[in-house]
Write a protein that binds this DNA or RNA. Structure first.
Length: 569
RNA sequence: CGGGGCGUAGCGCAGCCAGGUUAGCGCGCUUGGUUCGGGACCAAGAGGUCGGUGGUUCGAAUCCACUCGCCCCGACCA
């Protein structure tokens, strides 16, 4: 493709108001253009990358026997009512009304439609198993789109759904997806981890996420450098084996702590570490009030808490606490507070000499012993793992890192098949719900994650497998080297190498800078050495430069391109 | 949803606080010429509802109100 005849609008300066590297570079290098918050135009270069990613996805999905189909985005309210998600999605769902007044939604995901399709056509165990997938635009009205392609309101997703007659069958479909996903991300050239993910409230169904570690990522994962244990912080656990702190408070007494509310303030005021504090948090669960206790040096993990208390658990507002107990939230404590239940993190079991709020403004109580001075009905793992906590398997200090979620696989079970009445007749003649799995990959996120992972100060360095082109010809002085450029261009195309030829009438500096910015993995520089019959090959990844006789250029380039692609597949 | 920031030519910005001719600068763009290995040079030129609406004023990019859009931080931490 000749640069001069195509739309590749590179920017000399950084676009205003971009933070993350992928957002900034994809904009600057002419891959995407923003249309609205969280909605992007894919320009020719960007769309080529997306297409290459989609090709990999299709090949690997087809390899596990999945069938591609295509669902509508415009979906009728009734289907969402059947599963209850017309309500559950809330403001995240884009809704609209047609001229007849019917309610519609732009699909944020497609479990309901696939379940509906399955109930219509999959009637017998003989029809199972099946895996169906699509690559489709999803719409989610995110409260805060951010980081360019990483969190969008309109985005391309590969989603697939498995339908099995047995739980063993689901395990197989799930494992097939894990293998396919692993191959897809490997072939895309990404460094990634497969981690344990929150199975939400689906009753212990297995769920794993594919994560790219990156400071730009919005998710947080816990990782053991020793044994490889890795989990989303929503589910990550650590050994409770932590040294019992020595407390200076032997005797229980009320102390005056004027205007001292937060953990930081209390520790500073009393001169003790946060591990001696009990954080007391009031939660509402339906009509019940539950006091949740966690050590001062830990945060409550809401995902874990919801697994104990149920999905409707939410923290009480300061106003609710004041109205119910007449206490400021900073001074709430477990002693003498009239609540329906007190639950505590396991680290507090048997703790003594602790500090907690006195349920009275400007007072705390020190020297408190758990289960002596107050009763706890349940101890559970309710805390968020911190860096340095001990790995639950091998005891090694854990690391905590930000990560980008690029894929998620999930054993759904029968939640949707029951809700949508997707039943099949089994061998024994009985009607049973189809056992489902659901599996997603963010196409744009693969593209953005690759940039986050592999850029340098000059621009993007694409993995060869998903680069928009295999080679870019940098034609330094079109007036002198045009015939040579033309012939290299032709020869490479005949070898099925995808070439971007920078044939613009601009100065060499611009071409070199743009080539680095755009990030095609191999550059062929045709310049002053052409007079000596030489061209130069530059590897974008390493900066390595090789002089090659013009006659050998096409072959050498082809070999290098093949090698680079082999490296990532 | 809460907080902060920003909307002036295609892009990046100045001007606004202390209202006053034709609203500037750099890049880009057009034409002609010279150049050609890391964002060249000379000359001439085009390009603007100052986000929008309303108000104050003799006069508004500038002051006031409302509004739309975008970015960033936060959205359980007691």
């Amino acid at each position: 493709m000749r640069w001069s005849q195509h739309l590749i609008p590179t920017l000399k300066e950084d676009p205003r108001e971009t933070q993350s590297p992928s957002h900034r570079l994809l904009l600057r290098a002419g891959y995407i253009r923003q249309h609205q918050a969280g909605v992007y135009i894919f320009l020719p270069l960007g769309w080529r990358v997306m297409q290459r990613v989609m090709t990999i996805v299709r090949e690997e999905m087809d390899r596990i026997g999945a069938q591609e189909l295509f669902m509508p985005s415009l979906t009728a309210r009734e289907f969402w009512e059947e599963s209850g998600r017309w309500q559950d999605f809330g403001d995240d769902m884009f809704r609209l009304r047609d001229r007849k007044g019917r309610d519609l939604a732009l699909a944020p995901t497609h479990e309901e439609l696939f379940a509906e399709l399955a109930r219509h056509f999959l009637r017998s165990y003989r029809d199972l198993p099946q895996i169906w997938y699509q690559i489709q635009t999803k719409f989610r009205d995110e409260p805060r789109p951010r980081s360019g392609l990483l969190r969008c309101r309109e985005f391309l997703m590969k989603d697939s759904y498995s339908f099995d007659a047995t739980w063993e069958g689901l395990d197989q479909s799930y494992d097939l997806h894990r293998e396919a996903y692993t191959r897809i991300f490997q072939r895309s050239g990404l460094k990634f981890l497969v981690i344990e993910a929150s199975s939400g409230l689906m009753g212990g169904s297995q769920s794993e996420e594919f994560m790219v570690i990156s400071p730009t990522g919005e998710d947080t994962l816990v990782h053991c450098p020793q044994c490889g244990y890795a989990a989303n912080t929503e589910v990550a656990t650590a050994k409770p084996a932590l040294p019992t702190p020595q407390s200076p408070f032997q005797k229980r007494e009320k102390v005056h702590t004027p205007n001292v509310r937060t953990v930081e303030e209390v520790t500073a005021f009393l001169g003790v570490g946060p591990e001696l504090l009990i954080k007391s948090l009031v939660y509402k669960v339906g009509g019940r009030t539950v006091l949740v206790l966690v050590r001062g040096d830990y945060d409550v993990n809401e995902a874990k808490l919801q697994r104990v208390l149920g999905p409707e658990a939410r923290i009480a507002t300061p106003e609710e606490v004041w109205n119910q107990f007449g206490v400021e939230v900073g001074f709430v404590g477990p002693i003498g507070l009239e609540v329906d239940e007190v639950i505590a993190d396991e680290l507090l079991e048997g703790a003594e000499g602790m500090v907690c709020g006195a349920n009275e403004s400007d007072y705390h109580i020190v020297g408190v012993a758990v289960n002596q001075d107050f009763q706890v009905s349940r101890f559970a793992d309710l805390r968020t793992v911190r860096a340095g906590d001990q790995c639950p398997h091998c005891g090694t200090p854990l690391t905590v890192e930000n990560a980008i979620e690029i894929g998620h696989i999930f054993k759904l079970g029968t939640k949707y098949s029951e809700a949508m009445h997707a039943y099949f007749t089994d061998r024994d003649g009985k009607e049973k719900p189809i056992i489902m799995g659901s599996y997603g990959i963010g196409i744009g996120r693969i593209m953005a994650a690759a940039v986050e992972l592999y850029h340098d100060e000059h621009g993007i360095r694409w993995p060869a497998s998903i680069a928009p082109f295999d080679v870019e010809i940098v034609e330094v002085d079109p007036g002198k080297v045009r015939p040579q450029a033309e012939s290299v261009y032709q020869a490479l195309q005949e070898k099925q190498v995808e070439v971007l030829w920078d044939d613009r009438a601009v100065s060499p500096g611009i071409k070199f800078k743009d080539a680095d910015l755009v990030g095609v993995p191999v550059h062929v520089v045709l310049g002053r050495k052409v007079a000596q019959g030489l061209g130069e090959i530059k590897i974008r990844w390493t900066g390595e430069k090789i002089d090659v006789p013009l006659a050998d250029l096409p072959d050498r380039v082809q070999t290098i391109v093949q090698d680079l692609k082999a490296d990532v597949s």
